[in-house]
Design a protein around this nucleic acid. Sequence first.
RNA 1: GGGGUGGUAGUUAAGUCGGUUAUAACGCCGGCCUGUCACGCCGGAGGCCGCGGGUUCGAGUCCCGUCCACCCCGCCA
Length: 647
Amino acid sequence: MSRFIDELKRTHRCGELRPSDIGREVVLFGWVAHRRDFGGCIFIDLRDRTGLAQIVFDPTYQVPAEVARMAGATGELAPQAALEASHRLAEQVRREWVLGIRGVVIHRGEGNVNPKLPTGEVEVRVVEAEVFNRAETPPFALEDSINTDEEVRLQYRYLDLRRAPLQRTLELRHRMNQATRAYLSQEGCLELETPVLCKYTPGGARNFLVPSRLSLGKFYALAESPQLFKQLFMVAGFDRYFQIVKCFRDEDLRLDRQPEFTQIDVELSFCNQDEVFALMEGLLFRIFEETGVADLRALYPEGRFPRMSFADSMDRFGNDKPDLRFGLELCDLTDLVIAENGGGIPLLQGVAEKFASGEYRREMPAAIVKALVIPAAAGFSRPQLEAFEKGLREIKGFAGLARAKVGEGGVWTQSPFAKHVTEAFRTAVHAALGAKEGDVVCFQVGKPAVVNAAMSKLRLDVGKAMKLIPEFGHGGVWKLLWVVNPPLFDYDDETGRYEPAHHAFTRPVDEHVPWLDSDPGRVLCYRYDLVLNGFEIGGGSIRLHDPEVQQKVFSVLGIEEAAAKQMFGFVLDALRSGAPPPGGIAIGMDRLAMLLSGAATLREVIPFPKTNQGVDMMSGAPVAIEARQLEELGIRSIVAEGGNETR
RNA sequence: GGGGUGGUAGUUAAGUCGGUUAUAACGCCGGCCUGUCACGCCGGAGGCCGCGGGUUCGAGUCCCGUCCACCCCGCCA
């Protein structure tokens, strides 16, 4: 039996105390953040999730008569005896011990106020105290700002989570969740649940598999998203659905990817793209508003986010998630190279000739030429410029970056192109790029995918180096946009086949449907991504509901009717049973939380995240399972104890 | 699968050209201290230098392998 739990009860949270509480008797519970022992007087910073309160143990303190008289105030000891006992207790106390204290709120006195704390004007004179629990010395300081290795922090995640920054982040997520539920519910969406244990379907992300004990030798897949089920809700007539849902993907991880993550999943019947956008724009306004992160309405007073075509985004930024917080746009010089027949530069002449001969098609080019101008104002040294190129080598297929410094009178220096380039071409390039003397022009020639990947990374690297964007976080700037109408299919060089760029149920742009037969690579679709500061925070599509077009899409993908039935049979059947035209979207809750909180990685906004290798440093999951237990599931492992394959 | 960075007291780091007993700060332990709030002062303990092998009279340092973490490419509709 604890007097503090059973009789006294907590009256305030530590971070709540203010001068208006002066004279009150309070009961606080919390953790010892700091202890400052002066022999006589002992100060302790008591911490809970709301903040710190300074509590003072002073054996000479005279307990005011009115406090001593308060109901239940004395306990078993006389007030003065309780005071002395609590001082002796405070001498033993160490950081992270868990205490309950009863005392009187007083003003700290002139000169003793700590302006750094919200509670800094007051302190609590302790009359009575109880140690709920001792604590081992933590392996790292539980302070707001630490630079302890993440590996250690993840191992003791429950301690890391005791720190204020992470507590604030998780509270932010709570508000995001609440705002989402309130808003979408108010917009007529029903919060409905979908299975986590699903049927495995090939294609897309790798699934985590779960063996079935009741059907030996068979497996469930953990849902990589509620995609198919949410469409079935539409078929069933639920009209508008949402869910804050965990998704699972067994793919390699990045700072913005975890094997299990949370989506705000939405699906609407009878909708077009504009309605999906409007609903999501409203959601984002609401989330920003209720988290107090920024006044998004002031930034987008028309109430909508800008839109950019996928083609434009690739053209100007080299990727499908442009970071609009800074300029440094890319410039496609392919047409100029063709017009100037390579401008005297042998490498470019080769490209121009292939276009001239018809070997390369301009609308689906096998090679492009792109440039980025690094302004003279950036003042990079030659080694710094070379470091940018080095950073691009990790991109598969990257063949090298050509540079030219614009010298006096526009002449190129420090460049392999300098001695070949014609003046006409140079002048035209400068005009196209807006390059001036002292600027450095970077070129890249090659396959569009490689050039775009490299140039988009170059743009970001240069932007960071020029301090146009911070290395991590948002820099207080919020640039949202929709990237719309990407190609319906990706062409796979290796298999020589088309694959769905999104999924097989995305609706093609109506005017492009005839190209499904003739030129599938050119077919664009009603897919959209929501991009915030260079991160894809959401994506979705308008779904195909025309069985004829669906059939054509399958045939482009080389999916026979039987195979389609095998893979998606229940969905195809459902779509023939009276399906409304639906569309939907999913917002990456973790990524959004990461950006809103200014966190550097997804791990900082997930309570118990996994490492890059998908390992939970705290529990050690995943772990090996005993052969006997596998036997029950009809499984035999071919991996030895140490983790190596045995054959 | 590939490329890069890192791994030294509990934590964060230093450790030169391979050379004596591996440093420092913080934390921890003991002592002193009644107005601190990163309290202060005095004293002390604390090391598988990630792990395994090799070179060498001698390895934290050089070589090979390996494990772990982080960042990136591939991959992730």
